[in-house]
Design a protein around this nucleic acid. Sequence first.
DNA 1: TATTGTTATACTCTATAACTATA
DNA 2: TATAGTTATAGAGTATAACAATA
Lengths: 152, 152
Amino acid sequence: MSEPRHVAALDRVLELAALINTDLTRSLHALGLTPARTHLLWAVGRTGPATHRALATALDVSPRNITGLVDGLERDGFVAREPHPSDRRAMLVMLTARGAEVFHRMQADQQVFADLLFADMPPRRFASFVRGLDDVLAVLRTQIGSPELPDA
Amino acid sequence: MSEPRHVAALDRVLELAALINTDLTRSLHALGLTPARTHLLWAVGRTGPATHRALATALDVSPRNITGLVDGLERDGFVAREPHPSDRRAMLVMLTARGAEVFHRMQADQQVFADLLFADMPPRRFASFVRGLDDVLAVLRTQIGSPELPDA
DNA sequence: TATTGTTATACTCTATAACTATA
DNA sequence: TATAGTTATAGAGTATAACAATA
């Protein structure tokens, strides 16, 4: 097939991904966070206290990696480790007051960012754009799986 | 403002960025490449032989980092270092035969991927989707260039 | 015997700073 | 004095493997 317009559209999508990544990383850096640690903070913020094991599954990384990320977040005061109430092998990772505050701040920032991105787009075009996104996501999801966070 | 539909659309864009990143990284891994090394390989493939200095500017990383990336690519046979013809301090990084073959292979793969993503999208929707992408990119390009927000 | 999280080890990506050879 | 690339050092993120405590 090899449609030049398809390649041009993919180039735009890749540029979009790169720009969003740059913007997000910069914002996180200002909060004292890295992308990987934020990913974990976000998972705990949305789902509540979780074991290392559950987080390793949710982030699709090794359990050893979770230890390092939690070490960093704990050192900087974003999360705390607590013993699991019923399984003495396991640890529960939960947000500190500071971690919860940063999590809510990030949620608010995301709303502001979303409005900034789309506020000036004509409504019809916005609707078409979202439908196009869903089409592309449907194709991609069939190729790749997305992990879920099991219960702690 | 805080339009829930804007937030939902941003969620889709973020998922799209994550899925594409996963897919790309997986493909590169099968070729024996990492994202950072591929970035350098891609730059050399498109622009031709370049000094470390030029590559550091192009990839927006430190000169030290270029040394490491070129070390890895050279060890694996994708690029070669040659002395600069007129500046004896400088090195020129160029693709080996294998590097050039992989570069062209990646270009072909990208066309296949682009067709896969968009082939089933109705033409009108595809056109609207691309216009929406351009709108969002325009906002982001001005946003990335603008000064950082001070801590609140 | 299986699972949870850790220590041990190693590789990649990234940065700054000091050093060398050249310009 | 300035530039190009390197070595030295450090930290983050990632992996596998071995291990201790517990299930």
